[in-house]
Design a protein around this nucleic acid. Sequence first.
DNA 1: CGCCAGGCTTA
DNA 2: TAAGCC
DNA 3: GGCG
Length: 900
Amino acid sequence: MASSPSVYHQGKHNPFTQRFRKIDAIRTALRTAVAEELAQQTEERRRETHRVNAENKRRSATAAAAALDGKTDSSGIFPGRDSDGYGSEVSISVPCRLGCDGTASRTRSAGSSGGRAVSRPRDRLVELLSTAACVKQASASPDKAFGWRVDSGDGPEGEQEGASGVASTCGGRRDGHDRGPTPPPAAASVSTESQSVLASAGAKGGGAKTGVRFLEDILRLGPKGSRSNDAGGALPNPKRKSHPRRGGCKGEASRTQTHKKPRQGTGAVSGPFSGLSLCVVHLGSVTNNTIKTFKRGVCDGGGHVSMRFTPGDTTHIVADASLAASWEKLDNYFSGWGGVDDLDDAVNGGRVGLKSGMMPEGVPIVSNEWLSECLRRSVVVATDAYRLIPPPHRSAPVAASSAAAARQQQRSSTPDNQSIAAGGGILPAAAAAAAAAAGHIGLASSTRLTAARNEVRGGSTQGTAGQSTVAADLESMAVKGGFGARNPDVGKKRHTFHCQSTTNSRGHAVNSEAADMLEDLAKLCAVRGGDGSVFKERGFKNAAGVLKRLGVQITNIQQLKDLRKHEPQRVRGLGDSVMKELATFYEEGRMYRLDELEADPKLKCLKIFQEVGWVGAVKAQQLYDQGIRSIEDLRTKGLHLLSEQAQICLNRHEDITQRMPRSEAAEIEAVVTRVAQSICPGACGSYRRGKSHCGDVDVLIRPPEGQEDSPVFDDLIKRLVETGFITDKLTLAGSPHKPGKSQSFMGICKLPGKGRLHRRVDIKFYPTSLFAFAVLYFTGSSHFNRSMRSFAKIKGLKLSDKGLCRVNTVNGEEVHRFPSYSCLREEDVFTALGLEWREPKDRDGVQVQAFCSKGEGGATELSGRVVPVTLEQEQQHQALLEQDRLEASDYEDAELQQQE
DNA sequence: CGCCAGGCTTA
DNA sequence: TAAGCC
DNA sequence: GGCG
Ligand SMILES: O=c1ccn([C@H]2C[C@H](O)[C@@H](COP(=O)(O)OP(=O)(O)OP(=O)(O)O)O2)c(=O)[nH]1
Ligand SMILES: [Mg+2]
């Protein structure tokens, strides 16, 4: 039924925007004279700033040098320098508040000993984070390259002191073997960065192993398996029935094929490709459109093409040739994450082996070129020249930590939801501060947090749950098969899940083929860059979503045209441009624009380049212009063309382009929060939204109670670096700590032990007063954020991670900003905006609630009440309600708000 | 034809 | 200021 | 690219 057209996706289709602009002007006029004046001043200040900036620029190098003088920040990592005086005054003797367990005091001493050793934390950090050297070394010897230890001659005793101090504090139990049964082969050469870092750290005194032990201690997954907080680990997974997908494996693909294709019954046909049953891997340059083309050709020749692997049936696996270089991707692909952005098991209850489950031996893996050749010549060409051979050693995947991981697994939903009655929400800043001081910490004190976290959310176990379903027996196979083993908690099932893919019984399996193609189109728009590319990308993406959510299988362009005429709401977002593509799609199965873009070899390159972090459309084009054509080229001859961050990302490319299973994100979160003394709500981002796989881990840290200004963050990062957990720094902002300011670190980390991949991690710190805004922001999704901010905007407010402020604007330009409302809890922000609370899991761009809706595909019915499916609907609704009030009270509303 | 979130680092 | 990222 |  009522599908849920997204009112907001971009563009000013918001009916209230315009109207608001009028109000905007009026309101502005009505603001007090004081405000006006202030605004004026602000404007003046702004100009002044510009002037000064310009001047500074002129003084360029000299100025920069001058700015830096006095401090030792030669690396420039801490642009904040000492001028503010915080740097050298930071006390690190008490890094954080006491933990709740006995370890607190020990840790504390660790902190202080480290502090003593490093009398100038900032300089230390600078040194530790100095990547220039790392990068340089990296190209030389990748293995050790990223040892953070830049042996700038600084006090080695500082290092080791720190390290040994730390070690000793944890030394409560230090038994003999640290590393446990480390397989002898390659143990030395394979030593991870963290080890090497620690090794060098400890070399002078403690010995590497002590250091290593430290991290393991933090993790509590040392050899002895001493674990920590697990109490209710909730390991056993409720077995979940996977509803056998309905019918034929041929979703709509065949449907569309029916158009032109006389394609008839399967196997019986005898053609050049009869007997061929291909499993096509949707990765790399093999796109939806490619697959479609393959399908068309092979099916016509009597063969069969699927994206699923069917043991005993599949004769060949076809994958992008470039995957041979990064086998992890294939591995990951068959481990269960389809690459299909989490329709999410978190919601659907586990999609385990989306593609298949695992990958057995014996079936040849061939490059897509083979298939192209076959199609071109209409014969089955010999595969010899096209075989993709897996690397011989495929190390056994890490299974060790999975138990711990599982324990962590199910959290995500957070504390701060319990709605509070009235008064609680918005307080004047002063009152808020008082409240906070009085202990009324809105957003989850850590205890509250843990409690809340432990409650298992609906089907969230599924990461583990899903697979447990049928999985057992494949375990062995997984290991020897060499393929999808890496992720122990990913399901493996055999003949299960034959059909059926990304959606569950209900709703949106519909139109997915067209939708997928539109998404590819979106991607290519982004890759190509240029003016408005972001919006084109979103435009296509949005259109894809609209189509998927339509709830009706479209087989004919006329259907859409009719809808457009009679129920325009349902197809909002499908404009002329998209309709044109859809028309050809439904008529002949092609989107010309897509074909064209995909045929462009340059775009293929650009797309690949842009998979590297910090390489965007512009840089990619430059690289191309320089004759670079592949990642390999980039590595061999293009390094110097890349920014420092891009170089790092390139180095870690194969690892960090993989999304990680939720369980691993949980482990990473655990390390960070533990080192930080659990002063935090933990991971946000996709993790908090309950996704089964995360692109990175976004950890939020808050000040310990009563120590608003302790340098927790710097301390945390320092330790994570020393410990070898953080292997690379991408950006660091806001260090050293300044009261009331946020800080952030973006970098790369790696869990200890073999078989681990490097992962992207973002760590942020916000003062208590901003915390609610920070959690909201950092939890996302980005679409949700844009949407909410957009909503705030039409109400004359500006929402960001730094607060929610009333703003005065003139012609859309901000002219004055009032101080932020105070919101102590995430929920308060919703309230302040007049929006209903939304669980993190419901903050993904789209629908999602296949979860609660047992019943329908469209709007959700929950306890008799219709719940808006998208924020946009909510907005519209709210906006309508608000409209009158806004109009009526605009005047006083304006009054109501000024102090400054 | 203007707008599409807002803030931050790096070069 | 542009490019890139969250 | 879609919307108002
Ligand atoms: O353009 C953006 C990108 C991100 N964010 C916020 C929301 C997002 O959830 C959070 C973390 O960003 P990230 O890129 O990690 O996204 P994610 O939602 O965590 O997804 P992924 O699993 O890809 O990390 O930062 C934005 O507000 N705007
Ligand atoms: Mg993330």
